[in-house]
Design a binder for these strands. Structure first.
Length: 487
RNA sequence: GGCGACAUAGCCAAGUGGUAAGGCAGAGGACUGCAAAUCCUCCAUUCCCCGGUUCAAAUCCGGGUGUCGCCUCCA
């Protein structure tokens, strides 16, 4: 597998620290609000990375943190006159609702800052001991000049950064780019004891401390959004490596931004869309499909029309899975031997290999999805045209479905109903939906009778009426089928 | 000001030296009572512009133009 390493600015062959195992850490959200689509991109992408590694036979240890102690949380809590930690907890719970909806699997470990003060203060103490940090009035700063490799990840030198400095420099700092490891508490702020007085950790130290705790040294992959390269990840490296004297992480992966009208979606610009707002308009698989339809390092422009177009595309894949499931359900596989030169299983295998090649090349999900479409068309062709290759036998159908499952397992588009052993294309049905289904069945029965006596007006009246209600009818040789309209 | 990325059809998008994947939209056809779905065919002589390297460039080099990002909290 090849993956692009921000550290070296090129694609590299992925060689795990330990054969067959992948240890990865991805920066999670600061929990002071519901997540927006920009936050969802790394979630979905790195979830897909993890799924693909597993598909390729790796054992993955996946850690994603929550920043639940932070200035933004404190400010928000102050505005709402709430307790900062409780507020953070609430948004952790809300985060999981959104992530679950997007079919993002839980990480193996979701560490929170509030649960790791001992590890954090221990790392700060180590940095002080090694002369990489200093204390000023209860604050502790990392001293950048003590870490020669500073700037390696972001590809800039200290001189360059100073030249472009846009921030008022705190005169107490030894170097303008020195950053806080520990912030002394002001009255009323949540605070923890430390050898330097009451306070709280700076933003960057948590990730260094928690990543080292759970993944050890020189772990495989560290991920996050592009905007974390500097300063967050640069600082993480400096802290962890200065404190432990050992390499921190080996491959650094960064996803591009979601944009709106070509501008970065961000809270400060106010042009963000919450995941839950979007999910009110579009089913989760469409959102996930949309996010994966562009390579992860490219920007992805969002608007409703683009999401709708993605939804129409995804509908093709759904239809193909549906048609295949129907054919399997009928148990009507062809009994004819395959035509000479026609080898359906070999065709399927070609698609599998193409898919793997795409994903092996720096997780090219856009290409992989293209292959998914080609597979769908191939299967549809066989399914509708019994003459091609003599039609599909039952074991062919099962093999095709198995490939759909594998592609779906990696991309995570649709949840899989494990007990029923099927891909769940629609939202689960509630009680109301049962009634709806019953009523539709009744209408379809009446319409069937109308069609039998060629009363097209009555039949079309029912079909048109249902369409207005968002129910699409399709007449097939095997009878009528219905589905909900998407988007 | 410093650093970096990107520019492919109406739209989205893959493609880093060998002659433009895939999807959406659109056109025609098969199928259908008509539709829908599905399938077939068509839809970029050309990849922002100008030079250069090469037998060969969307792909490499140089120069422009444009857009975006990082340097400040941000996925």
């Amino acid at each position: 597998m090849q993956l692009y390493n921000t550290l070296t600015r090129r694609k590299e062959e992925f060689v795990p620290r330990e054969p067959g195992q992948v240890a990865m850490y991805v920066c999670g959200p600061t929990t002071y609000n519901y997540i927006h689509l920009g936050n969802a991109r790394p979630l979905v992408f790195f979830d897909t990375v993890r799924r693909y590694f597993e598909y390729r036979g790796y054992r993955v240890l996946y850690v994603q943190n929550f920043t639940d102690i932070d200035d933004k949380i404190i400010n928000r809590a102050r505005e709402e006159k709430a307790d900062a930690l409780l507020l953070a907890q609430k948004y952790v719970a809300e985060y999981f609702k959104d992530a679950d909806a997007l079919n993002v699997r839980r990480a193996d470990i979701h560490p929170r800052v509030s649960g790791h003060l001992p590890e954090i203060t221990a790392m700060i103490a180590a940095l002080l001991e090694k002369g990489a940090a200093y204390v000023v009035d209860g604050d502790v700063y990392f001293h950048i000049a003590s870490f020669p490799a500073y700037g390696r990840l972001s590809g800039r030198s200290l001189d360059e950064m100073q030249a472009g400095a846009r921030v008022e420099v705190d005169p107490r700092k030894k170097h303008p780019m020195d950053f806080a490891l520990w912030k002394a508490a002001k009255p009323g702020e949540p605070a923890w004891d430390s050898p330097w007085g009451k306070g709280r950790p700076g933003w960057h130290i948590e990730c260094s401390a928690m990543a080292v705790k759970y993944l050890g040294h020189n772990f495989d992959i560290h991920g996050g959004g592009f905007d974390l390269i500097f300063p967050h990840h640069e600082n993480e490296i400096a802290q962890a490596e200065a404190a432990t004297g050992r390499p921190f992480a080996r491959y650094w992966m960064h996803n591009g931004f979601i944009t709106v009208n070509q501008e970065k979606m961000s809270k400060s610009l106010g042009n963000f869309f919450l995941v839950r707002e979007i999910l009110e308009k579009f089913p989760p698989p469409v959102v996930r499909f949309f996010l994966l339809s562009t390579h992860y390092r490219s920007p992805l422009d969002f608007d409703d029309e683009k999401l709708a177009a993605a939804g129409r595309g995804l509908e093709r894949i759904k239809t193909s899975i549906r048609l295949l499931a129907e054919a399997m359900g009928r148990g009507s596989g062809s009994e004819k031997p395959p035509a000479a030169g026609d080898d359906f299983p070999a065709t399927l295998e070609k698609y599998r290999q193409d898919f793997i090649a795409a994903m092996d090349d720096d997780f090219n999900t856009a290409l992989a999805i293209g292959i998914f479409f080609e597979l769908a068309r191939e299967v549809n062709t066989y399914l509708q045209d019994g003459s091609k290759g003599g039609g599909l036998r039952q074991d062919d159908l099962a093999k095709a479905m198995s490939l759909f499952f594998d592609f779906n397992r990696v991309l995570g588009l649709f949840p899989v109903d494990v007990t029923a052993g099927r891909i769940r294309l629609e939202e689960p049905a509630g009680d109301d939906d049962k009634l709806t289904a019953g009523l539709i069945a009744l209408l379809l029965e009446v319409r069937g009778q109308a069609r039998a006596r060629k009363d097209w007006a009555a039949a079309d009246r029912i079909r048109d009426g249902l369409k207005e209600l968002g129910i699409i009818l399709e007449d097939t040789p095997q009878g009528v089928r219905w589905k909900r309209q998407q988007g």
